[in-house]
Computed example of a mutant assay.
Amino acid sequence: MPPSFPTHPAGRLWLEKEDQGFLGQGRAELLERIDELGSMAKAARAMGMGYKRAWDMVEAMNNLADAPLVERVTGGRGGGGTRLTEHGRRMIEEFRAAEAAYTRFLEMLAAESGDPERLRALMGRLAMRTSARNQWWGRITDIQSGSVNTEVVLRLGGGEPLVAVITNQSVRELALAEGTEVLALVKATHIILTGEDAGLRTSARNRLCGTVERIDQGEVEAGITLRLGGGNTVTGVVTNESVATLGLAEGGAACALIKASHVILAVNG
């Protein structure tokens, strides 16, 4: 009989940014209270914390975020207050989605914790599922089935369209339908990078354009990260020679070309 672990897997989720704590359960709840009550004082009181401490938490998040999560409102019949920005609401949604995924992960660990061999196998499967550098959530807007494969069109969170071609069997196994939320994964090595003004005609169905946010240059290759207009990022790998040939530079425009057959789809559960 396999040995069992004396403990039950448990934990709490924290999101970090620039190696600093950014968003956790307490901060997410504070943001939700601000959104509900429209007042920092009322939100702090509802959570049983001091007004200054609440503002310190908010300012720490605002300083780390790409855009403010909370802003002051002046004037009006109520004399002003505090409100969440659209970016703040989006961050709450993303945190709650990550928290739900983390909870499912802990539930899977708990289910396998009585058998160390099965637990190690589970961890290996999870690592394989998350090895792709590019991961985007999107919602299916169209499905066109052929004799063997199906073309699935997604709308990513930033509004960009993305086309995937998968087998009909995969569509059935994943129970895909219009409106289904899916995770799209693409390996960095499957990304083809071009300058934005490159007048290329290619067989790649997907063309995602944005601004070069970061270039991580090694001895032979470089990782190029683009920031798309809707906020998503795309990371590709090219040779150092290609960086020079394509004129890629941080702050410059570029596009990522992706074949529909290189897009992997995954669903929760």
Results as ranks from 00 to 15, higher is better:
216 D>S: 12
131 S>T: 13
169 Q>D: 13
45 R>G: 03
172 R>Y: 03
19 D>W: 11
148 V>K: 01
160 E>F: 14
242 S>L: 11
213 E>V: 06
123 M>W: 11
9 P>S: 10
82 T>Q: 05
53 R>T: 10
16 E>G: 09
222 A>N: 01
30 L>S: 13
181 E>Q: 11
23 L>T: 07
173 E>I: 07
152 V>C: 00
83 R>G: 05
234 V>L: 07
73 V>R: 05
23 L>P: 09
73 V>Y: 02
139 R>W: 03
48 G>H: 06
173 E>G: 02
194 T>C: 02
50 G>S: 12
87 H>R: 10
117 E>M: 08
167 T>L: 03
85 T>I: 09
83 R>C: 12
240 N>M: 14
34 I>P: 03
56 D>Y: 15
174 L>Q: 04
184 A>W: 14
213 E>Y: 11
170 S>C: 07
263 V>F: 03
73 V>F: 13
18 E>W: 15
78 G>I: 09
261 S>E: 08
266 A>W: 11
204 A>H: 03
145 S>E: 10
192 I>L: 05
38 G>H: 04
142 D>K: 11
133 R>N: 03
37 L>D: 01
124 G>Y: 08
168 N>G: 06
193 L>S: 03
134 N>T: 04
183 L>Y: 12
263 V>G: 00
147 S>V: 04
121 A>G: 02
15 L>I: 11
189 T>N: 04
154 L>H: 03
175 A>E: 11
265 L>N: 00
106 L>Q: 08
20 Q>A: 15
1 M>H: 09
239 T>G: 08
169 Q>V: 08
68 P>C: 15
157 G>F: 00
175 A>H: 10
147 S>M: 06
257 L>E: 02
146 G>E: 07
232 N>C: 06
45 R>P: 00
81 G>Q: 03
126 L>A: 07
87 H>A: 04
208 L>Y: 10
21 G>V: 07
51 Y>P: 03
3 P>C: 09
163 V>W: 00
214 R>F: 12
12 R>I: 11
75 G>F: 07
240 N>F: 13
236 G>L: 07
64 L>P: 04
121 A>R: 08
236 G>P: 01
175 A>F: 10
60 A>S: 13
13 L>M: 12
